[in-house]
Design a protein around this nucleic acid. Structure first.
Length: 293
DNA sequence: GGTAGACCTGGACGC
DNA sequence: GCGTCCAGGTCTACC
């Protein structure tokens, strides 16, 4: 089947896909030259399908296998969520117009973020980004998908992101030794077991009306989620009141305003304080002067 | 509430 | 090839 979905304007597919690093992590795959984003999705019916998503006039086109009506409806909801198609960034663009370092955001349609279909997947991915290098995050994610993901019927090498149930059924030892998650193994296992048992309902966070501060506290109750990871997850939920403050943030702010001298987290916060509820977006899409490693 | 040290992995480097 | 050092956030114990 093929389906076209419209996006609230302005919308640029490439900008959304490249909004952060998820596009480099399986089961996402993005071919920049052709503008094709693929993703292996497990629907709630258990069917595993590969999605081919491209830019189309006014939005995106999605190509995948033949689906039942309920699977089709679920797919539309998931794609809309993953690409943040309904996002209204009018208020952010209004304040960004007054800042030269954010002058590009409206023209480039910055502000949407690429998300996983489930919030559980985003939480797992985020834990795998903490205290490690990006190459290791990619490796751990690949291991997790290869070892625990369900295969496409037509190609066993193509696998979906593992479900909470599947991960809950594994062991810490296996996650440590074979998936190479290190000390993160018990965090991922506990998260999967809590989600699988119903003790946690991470999907509800997508539509929660909790104040952002309260939401942050709830996220930080999850083992492995600290201040950086919580801010990152809030950004994925469309709440940009906090900065995902990591070593990169310290480096960027140091070069932007402190002549390369070491800065504290408080100084990073202070640098973006005036952006209030758009703090995270301003930080994320800031046109940094420093481009070194 | 703030701080120090431990937690792990894999890459870089020196020998 | 081996050993050592380092980067990367979070947790826990302690003050």
């Amino acid at each position: 089947m093929q389906k076209t979905l419209t996006a609230r304007q302005p919308f640029i597919f490439h900008t959304t896909v490249r909004s952060h690093g998820w596009w480099q992590l399986v089961p996402f795959h993005y071919m920049e030259t052709t503008g094709l984003l693929t993703y292996i999705l497990r629907l709630s019916s258990g069917k595993v399908v590969d999605l081919h998503i491209r830019e189309a006039p006014g939005g995106v086109s999605v190509e995948t296998a033949t689906l039942t009506q309920s699977e089709h409806d679920e797919l539309i909801c998931l794609i809309t969520w993953m690409l943040d198609l309904d996002r209204d960034l009018t208020a952010f663009y209004a304040v960004a117009r007054r800042e030269p370092k954010l002058a590009h955001v409206e023209q480039k349609a910055c502000g949407r973020v690429l998300r996983s279909p489930t919030f559980f997947e985003d939480v797992v991915r985020t834990i795998l980004t903490t205290n490690t290098l990006w190459a290791a995050t990619k490796r751990m994610t690949t291991n997790l998908v290869d070892q625990f993901g369900e295969s496409l019927e037509t190609d066993a090498s193509q696998k979906a992101f593992p479900t909470p149930d599947r991960l809950a059924a594994t062991t810490e030892a296996q996650l440590r030794a074979e998936t190479r998650l290190g000390y993160r193994a018990p965090y991922i296992l506990e998260l999967a077991q809590r989600e699988s048992s119903g003790e946690l309902n991470l999907e509800a966070y997508k539509t929660s009306n909790l104040p952002t501060l309260q939401m942050r506290k709830e996220l930080m109750k999850i083992k492995g989620i600290g201040a950086y990871a919580a801010a990152n997850l809030l950004m994925l939920l469309g709440r940009s009141d906090f900065i995902p403050l990591d070593s990169w943030a310290l480096k960027m702010v140091s070069h932007e305003w402190y002549d390369g001298q070491p800065v504290t987290p408080a100084q990073v916060e202070a640098a973006f304080e005036k952006w209030a509820e758009f703090k995270g977006l301003a930080y994320w899409f800031w046109n940094w002067s420093y481009t070194g490693s």
